[in-house]
Design a binder for these strands. Structure first.
Length: 466
RNA sequence: UCCCCGGUAGCUCAAUCGGCAGAGCGGGUGGCUGUUAACCACUAGGUUGAUGGUUCGAGUCCGUCCCGGGGAGCCA
């Protein structure tokens, strides 16, 4: 194939390209004809939000044959002279010398119009929606965030650990699991004994992971600082704008690290990711600020510039009790904070990210470290406006006896998690970590209200298309 | 899973009290123009989500189901 210049590069280095010949490849967004004998073709290659305007002269014998086929959606390669554009709306344009039509696109049946589509409609055409401005911009931001995750941890000496997708434990307390089996439905139906899984691939029940945390702890207690970044699965029948059955989670875990260190790391992490997007994806951000969430840039800039509010659960309850809001759910020490409470704290009271620490022991899972008061655990949730909880983490219980007590209290088998207990028997050390949902970070940085827009192929109850 | 609101042309939506199925955009044709979600004219395009019922008559009312949206729970 002939090599081409990416359109983003063309705009970024436009002064260097003016007067020279360039070759671009992409898909036609729209075409306008002028009876002065030229066509204006907007070509987009996904490298940036902007399309480049191609000027095609009708008198050129080569064009006359293909001009009728250059319609929205078709794929082209164009070679021409990069020139300053006399028209408004773009600094440069390409005066085409050669146009090669790769693939036609029937305008009668091509679903994408140059007009705006609803996000619900675009979801039904997930094979074409990345060609829309919105999904293209989401994809670039998601990519930059993913890269930023690795940059952040690699720069700080964290090792990237690939924790298993298939696991054999289903009682981590992090939600419903998907079963993994090679048994057919008939053997599952006819099997009466508990030993049915002896004939299964793993000779035991197996599931898709709901978290890589427990395995990450193993490696943190050997390599010091590690992180996971991979797909995670929850089979909860939750149908909301913030939940997916398959999503991507980032889970750092650090040894010789307490809740305070963990919290500092998490705050720095959020600021770093948002900061990179503000710098490197400004064009896409402006698009979202214009069409999706007017307060987006302000919210993101504030996230980077101001310190997060850090309060204990106890203080959060006090703030909520003191407020004049008419909450549907009662605020009482020992009750879980409801979405309405979280929203009040981060959107109304503080109007910036809020970290809540030291939750009641009964509300949190067995692995969180019990505080000196024995009533609370060293947990932390970071809430951001619009999204709610974007990060959840804790210092882990590193004392063997307290861990076993917690497991018994929560009904976790010390036999099945023997290895987890052993980590507290052989060189135990204070350690901590957190989980961050990538999609929620993408929602936060794009302003998109529904999580189904921020992952290429969303999996939700009843939906695994494409 | 629960509560509320929706589903009408390819897309976005309108249709008064139950009384002839509509518009804009997109498509086609023609015109105009260094155009910018271009513009002007003409034109094609419908099993009103599915199903059962009430009625002289149902897009509209009732039952059931499917799908979408908002909220809740669960959580990241």
């Amino acid at each position: 194939m002939e090599k081409a210049t990416r359109i983003a590069e063309l705009f970024a280095q436009s002064e260097a390209y003016v007067g020279k010949t360039a070759r671009v490849q992409g898909w036609v967004r729209t075409r306008r004809d002028s009876k002065a004998g030229i066509s204006f073709i907007e070509l987009n290659d996904g490298s940036c939000l902007k399309s480049v305007q191609i000027i095609a002269d009708h008198n050129h014998p080569e064009y006359q044959e293909i001009l009728a086929d250059i319609t929205t959606g078709c794929s082209l390669q164009v070679e021409g002279t990069v020139s300053p554009s006399p028209g408004k709306g773009q600094s440069i344009e390409i005066r085409a010398n050669r146009i090669k039509l790769y693939g036609r696109s029937d305008p009668l049946t091509y679903p994408l119009q140059k007009k705006r589509h609803s996000l619900e409609f675009l979801r039904q055409i997930a094979h074409l929606r990345p060609r829309s401005n919105t999904i293209g911009a989401v994809t670039r931001i998601r990519n930059r965030l993913s890269y930023g995750v690795h940059q952040f941890f690699q720069d700080r000496g964290f090792y990237y650990i690939h924790t298993p997708i298939i696991t054999s434990s289903d009682c981590e307390g992090a939600g419903e699991v998907f079963r993994v089996t090679t048994l057919g439905p008939e053997s599952l139906l006819t099997g009466q004994s508990d030993n049915i899984f002896e004939g299964d691939f793993f000779n035991r029940p197996a599931f898709l992971t709901v978290s890589g945390q427990l395995q990450a702890e193993i490696y943190a207690l050997a390599l010091g600082k590690v992180y996971t970044f991979g797909p995670t699965f929850r089979s909860e029948n939750s149908n909301t704008s913030r939940h997916l059955a398959e999503f991507w989670m980032i889970e750092p875990e650090a040894a010789f690290c307490d809740l305070q260190d963990n919290l500092e790391l998490a705050v720095e992490f959020v600021k770093h990711l948002v900061g990179t997007i503000l710098v490197d994806c400004s064009e896409d951000l402006e698009f979202f600020a214009h069409f999706v969430e007017p307060a987006l840039l302000e919210t993101l800039q504030k996230t980077v510039d101001t310190s997060f509010e850090i309060i204990s659960y106890k203080e959060a309850v006090a703030f909520l009790k003191r407020s004049d809001e008419a909450f549907t759910f009662p605020v009482e020490w020992g009750n879980d904070l409801q979405a309405e409470h979280e929203r009040y704290l981060t959107e109304k009271l503080f109007q910036k990210p809020v970290a809540i620490i030291d939750f009641p022991r009964a509300l949190k899972p067995f692995y969180m470290r019990v505080n000196a008061d024995e009533q609370t655990v060293a947990a932390m949730d970071i809430l951001v406006p619009r999204i709610g909880e974007i990060i959840g983490g804790s210092q882990r219980e590193d004392r063997r006896d307290v861990l076993i007590e917690q497991m018994q209290l929560k009904g976790i088998s010390t036999e099945e998690y023997r290895w987890y207990v052993e980590l507290r028997e052989f060189g135990s050390v204070p350690h901590a970590g957190f989980g961050c949902g990538l999609e929620r970070m993408v929602q936060f940085t794009t302003g998109l209200p529904n999580i189904r827009e921020v992952i290429p192929f969303p999996r939700t109850p009843g939906h695994a298309e494409f």
